[in-house]
Design a protein around this nucleic acid. Structure first.
Ligand code: FES
Ligand code: FES
Lengths: 144, 144
DNA sequence: TTTAATTCGGATAATTTTATCCTATTTGTG
DNA sequence: CACAAATAGGATAAAATTATCCGAATTAAA
């Protein structure tokens, strides 16, 4: 469903949010360890998220990644997915026609748009705060 | 959402169903042309569908692909997707945890399973007959 | 001001997916 | 039987995704 890059991006963002609530900035190394991802690849993804203003990076000694506490609840999964995978998941035809077009629908169009719309709503409705709180309370997990 | 292979597999199956209703067996070449797919790659996918008993192949002169007319309405999208992409789309954790497990859920598990379940139901509920009839009536299209 | 801890960014490698090519095999027809 | 028209299947190539490596730039602190 999501690319590996996107999966890492989501998990990393949640962990960064969690740390930011605690007031601690986290390093790439700590993130990769926590979400069980390859360090260098994760670095690329974090750079992407920084460029898209999803997370914030501080260079140099004692640097790392963080998110402004006041923004965490307004960052939606859709922002992260969009930054990494683009909007293909929302707009692309499920069977690879040139465009998804109501007036020239592929065979699964009307079956597919319902699921796609639900996915879109879910991503737009889910924010980093709730996901981070679930990790904090031990309700959900970032690895294994 | 689906792999390219799966997209081709679905479109090819619909076209084969349509031809089978007309009583004509179709060649690989005709299929690839109709669904706008690379011929050799499509051949591999069709072989896969044959092995999984989704479609039927006849070798030699005047050979080609067909589906038993009486079976078309009972072949579901889920059969095709399963034959080509396996069951990952149903069972895999959305964030790549080792397994999707209610007792050890990833952060998006409870948000995700709804969408996944709707997708599953859609695939299990949609059969080749209805898709082929839409193509026949000009309600939907296999290419462009 | 030097050093160490970091992120950044370019180059490259490994893996997976997608695509192509060529030969073997099967089968209907003259 | 010989031939032509098909699918089957193995080998290989191209492209995309995932992963690694290494040096440059930045920054806090000794
Ligand atoms: S045209 Fe294929 S999903 Fe809309
Ligand atoms: S554990 Fe991740 S989707 Fe179920």
């Amino acid at each position: 469903m999501f690319s590996k890059a996107c999966e890492y991006g989501i998990k990393a963002s949640i962990f960064i949010a969690l740390s930011s609530y605690k007031g601690v900035r986290v390093s790439l190394k700590a993130i990769a360890k926590e979400i069980n991802s390859p360090e260098a690849f994760t670095a690329k993804i974090l750079q992407d998220l920084v460029r898209h203003d999803v997370i914030n990076s501080i260079k140099g000694a004692h640097g790392g990644f963080e998110i402004d506490n006041t923004l965490i609840s307004s960052i939606k999964l859709s922002h992260i997915v969009n930054a990494i995978d683009g909007d293909a998941i929302y707009s692309r035809c499920g069977l690879g026609l040139h465009t998804c077009n109501e007036n020239h629908p592929c065979p699964v169009h009307h079956k597919f748009i319902g699921v796609r719309e639900e996915l879109k709503l879910m991503l737009e409705d889910t924010n980093l705060e709730e996901l981070a709180l679930d990790i904090k309370s031990g309700t959900s997990f970032l690895k294994v």
